[in-house]
């Protein structure tokens, strides 16, 4: 959890707006540090968290969360965190064995044309069952549910179509954000192309546009336009999209950032401590 980012977004573990869909995206840079921020933020806020980790192993997320002061293994044991480890699940599908049919959630690997229905079923069933379970047990009072996905563009690499991914995110939004009044954070990474819209519909570009339309807050990470720098790792564009009355109201802010060992600092452009 980066406190500077919290003050920018006006959230704390105790108070945050519900029903939000936060989109993290990057271009020629790496936005995955933001996923760790949201993971530790919502775990501290005592939300129930579903984490679909497709890119890295559980150990990776756990090691970083440890540095940010949150223990994933404990959260998992308490039932606060449900972790779907994509790498582990995929192996039994990619190298089929006769005995083990593999997990249902990663069914799309067998035939990408089917779409992400099985993955959505996994999210929906665990989300709704826990909502029921909460009323019955009432021993641990968890906050609103949160779904985190790291990251959607891996699905494209595995052969899933853009339309299927957009369907998945839309269904998740309907279930998590609207029905259960929870939050959703998704990461989508874009390929190096510098806005060269010359007719060919690149998958990740199209995905990013579709997701931007759905979400209520975007954090877009880019490298510095002036090139590589050791002390400033890039810039984040924060964009709020609020529906106020009849018109859309968007507000944009630009920050530069630097990732440290145990966090990240955000500052206004040109005010890096290395420059001043």
């Amino acid at each position: 959890m980066f406190t500077e980012l919290n003050s920018i977004l006006n959230t704390t573990p105790d108070s945050f707006t519900q029903g939000e869909f936060v989109l993290l995206s990057d271009r020629q840079s790496d936005a995955s540090f933001l996923i760790h921020h949201f993971l530790s933020l919502y775990l501290r806020a005592r939300c129930r968290v579903w984490f679909v980790g497709l890119v890295q192993s559980f150990n990776h997320y756990s090691a970083i969360s440890q540095r940010l002061g949150v223990s994933l293994t404990q959260a998992k044991e308490k039932g606060q965190l449900v972790f779907l480890e994509g790498l582990k699940e995929s192996l039994s599908v990619l190298i089929p064995e006769d005995t083990d049919p593999g997990s249902q959630a990663m069914d799309f690997l067998r035939d990408p044309a089917v779409g992400l229905k099985s993955l959505y079923e996994f999210v929906r069933s665990s989300a709704t069952s826990s909502a029921v379970g909460k009323h019955e047990e009432a021993e641990e009072k968890w906050g609103p549910p949160v779904l985190l996905v790291d990251d959607l563009s891996v699905l494209l690499s595995l052969g899933v179509s853009v339309g299927a991914v957009l369907d998945f995110s839309h269904y998740c939004r309907a279930t998590v954000c609207s029905q259960l009044q929870g939050n959703m954070v998704m990461l989508s990474r874009c390929d190096g192309g510098e806005e060269e819209d010359d007719g060919d519909d690149e998958g990740s570009e199209r995905l990013l546009k579709g997701l931007t339309h759905q979400c209520s807050l975007t954090l877009h990470v880019q490298g510095l336009p002036t090139g590589y720098c050791r002390d400033i790792h890039g810039q984040v564009e924060v964009c709020w999209r609020r529906r106020q009355g009849d018109g859309h109201h968007t507000q944009k802010k630009l920050f530069q950032y630097k990732v440290h060992d145990k966090g990240a600092s955000f500052f206004a452009p040109g005010t890096s401590s290395a420059v001043l």
């Binding site: 790496d30 995955s32 540090f33 760790h36 890295q56 150990n59 990776h60 090691a63 970083i64 540095r67 940010l68 050791r230 790792h233 990732v259 440290h260 060992d261 145990k262 966090g263 990240a264």
Partner: peptide, 11 residues
């Protein structure tokens, strides 16, 4: 950037 937040960037 395995198991760490900040990757070691070259000089």
């Amino acid at each position: 950037h395995l198991n760490c937040l900040a990757s070691k960037l070259p000089d």
